[in-house]
């Protein structure tokens, strides 16, 4: 029963929503409008689940004094302060959430995390990017052309370099990307059909019938 009811709902809604997409009748459109509202409400619960999981993980880490428990204090305090300030003053431009948390804290911290990638990338490329085989040599040459062609210095070195970089991106890169996209799309359709027809049941989780 615990499995059959969700499977039946999934099968019913899967087929109805597929058919609905091609039927522009007002009843069909109304039903579609209603179900998208349900989806938005269910999605909002994911936030509750996320916050619950976050709190449980960090309080447990703190209680057991696991490695890095001090960072859990930072995470919990930051979450509590953001929530209180957000609920009390809202998210307007003049709110303390914007003026004391988002702009002076989150923006530079988040940007710094991303910016240090440039340093790691340079170091990693120096140590690991080796032309050991013909394929890796080809990759290396293509990467050099695209890297130079994508910045103004490339055009300053040779005016046709941006065109060459554009060709690499538009022809060989796109052929590979398109093949991957088709593969992913076909895989997505197959998985969706398996879920609708009850062949794939991983989403039901464990437990008894």
């Amino acid at each position: 029963m615990k499995r059959n009811v969700p499977l039946a709902i999934c099968l019913g809604f899967g087929i109805v929503m597929m058919v609905q997409f091609f039927v522009p009748h007002p009843i069909s459109v109304g039903f579609y409008d209603l179900t998208t509202k349900w989806v938005r409400i269910v999605s909002a619960f994911a936030l509750v689940l996320g916050v619950g999981s976050f709190l449980m993980y960090h309080t447990e880490k703190l209680r057991r004094r696991r490695t890095g428990w001090l960072y859990s204090i930072v995470a919990l305090v930051a979450a509590a302060v953001s929530t209180v300030v957000g609920l009390a003053w809202g998210v307007k431009q003049t709110s303390p959430l914007q003026n004391y948390i988002f702009t002076p804290l989150l923006v530079p911290l988040n940007a710094s995390m991303f910016a240090i990638l440039a340093f790691y990338m340079a170091s990693a490329a120096y140590r690991a990017f080796r032309a050991r085989t013909k394929e890796s040599a080809l990759l290396l040459i293509a990467a050099f052309i695209v890297m130079l062609g994508m910045v103004p210095l490339g055009a300053a070195i040779w005016h046709r370099l941006p065109d060459l970089a554009e060709w690499i991106l538009s022809v060989p890169n796109m052929a590979a990307k398109r093949a991957i996209t088709f593969g992913v799309a076909l895989g997505g359709i197959a998985t969706a059909l398996k879920v609708i027809l009850g062949i794939e049941r991983g989403w039901l989780g464990g437990g008894k019938q």
Binding site: M121, M147, M150, L153
Partner: peptide
């Protein structure tokens, strides 16, 4: 910022070339 990005790309390329020669 494009000048900085140009030089960053060049640095990475030079480092990769030096690394390959040494290897």
């Amino acid at each position: 910022a494009m000048d900085s990005q140009s030089l960053a790309h060049v640095v990475i390329m030079i480092l990769v070339i030096i690394g390959n020669i040494a290897y």
